[in-house]
Amino acid sequence: MSGNVSELHATTPAGEYLAFTLGQEEYGIDIQKVAEIRSYETPTRIANAPDFVKGVVNLRGIIVPIVDMRIKFSLGTPSYDQFTVVIILNIGHRVVGMVVDRVSDVTTLTPEQVKPAPEIGSVVNTDHIVGLGTLDERMLILIDIDKLMSSADMGLIENTALAA
């Protein structure tokens, strides 16, 4: 007999998560996937790329596709201001940039602070949500960034990166 809570803790160990904001929600991703955080700069557009792929940037000789998560999650028209940042991620053997509204902090979560994700409709496909991190009044939606970035609907990133 398997319990959801023990399975959740097996896949989401206590650890450090980078907290960032998209629209009104706060999300968290495993800090170990984050290579760096950069201010937003307009990427070079790639023909026939989906809307959420803003283009590519040259990061010290590596061509990095830039994905705007606000467009991907249909969170309205994104605006780019001094708080807009690009989180550079190491996903498998590739580097991907993720545009978010702002980054707040790095948060350490204990297993007790991670709750299973509810089975409800969400902006993010719940397959990519590994749980909810609770910190006093804050709640972080914890995303399995590997699974999200390698999912079928994001597969165009791989093609875009190869085309560049």
Rank of each mutant, 00 (worst) to 15 (best):
98 M>R: 00
77 T>I: 07
150 S>N: 07
25 E>V: 02
160 T>N: 03
66 I>Y: 11
27 Y>A: 03
38 R>V: 08
37 I>R: 01
143 I>A: 01
48 N>W: 03
22 L>E: 02
51 D>K: 04
45 R>M: 12
71 I>W: 06
50 P>R: 07
17 Y>P: 04
5 V>M: 09
94 R>T: 04
53 V>K: 05
101 D>I: 05
27 Y>L: 02
42 T>M: 13
69 M>Y: 10
8 L>K: 14
134 T>V: 14
120 I>D: 05
18 L>D: 11
145 I>E: 09
72 K>M: 11
72 K>E: 11
20 F>G: 02
25 E>D: 06
132 L>E: 05
105 D>S: 04
140 L>P: 03
10 A>E: 14
40 Y>L: 10
142 L>Y: 10
51 D>G: 03
92 G>C: 14
15 G>F: 13
85 V>I: 05
63 I>A: 11
82 Q>H: 10
63 I>S: 13
64 V>Y: 10
94 R>I: 04
106 V>S: 07
122 S>H: 11
111 P>F: 11
161 A>H: 10
81 D>T: 08
16 E>W: 06
95 V>W: 11
96 V>H: 07
118 P>H: 03
104 S>E: 08
161 A>Y: 08
29 I>Y: 05
41 E>L: 15
69 M>R: 05
63 I>G: 06
22 L>K: 01
109 L>R: 07
29 I>R: 00
22 L>P: 00
146 D>K: 10
143 I>P: 07
42 T>L: 01
85 V>D: 01
6 S>D: 12
82 Q>D: 13
132 L>W: 01
29 I>A: 07
29 I>M: 15
91 I>N: 14
43 P>L: 14
119 E>M: 03
43 P>F: 11
107 T>M: 10
35 A>H: 03
137 E>G: 05
34 V>P: 01
103 V>R: 00
2 S>R: 12
128 H>N: 14
153 D>K: 02
136 D>P: 01
58 N>E: 11
127 D>T: 15
123 V>D: 01
90 N>L: 12
55 G>V: 07
129 I>W: 02
102 R>C: 02
72 K>R: 08
18 L>K: 06
151 S>P: 05
7 E>A: 15
101 D>L: 05
126 T>E: 10
62 I>G: 10
143 I>M: 00
32 Q>H: 05
27 Y>Q: 04
141 I>K: 09
58 N>I: 08
47 A>E: 04
104 S>Y: 04
149 M>I: 15
108 T>N: 09
29 I>D: 14
141 I>Y: 07
147 K>T: 15
64 V>T: 14
104 S>F: 09
62 I>Y: 13
125 N>M: 02
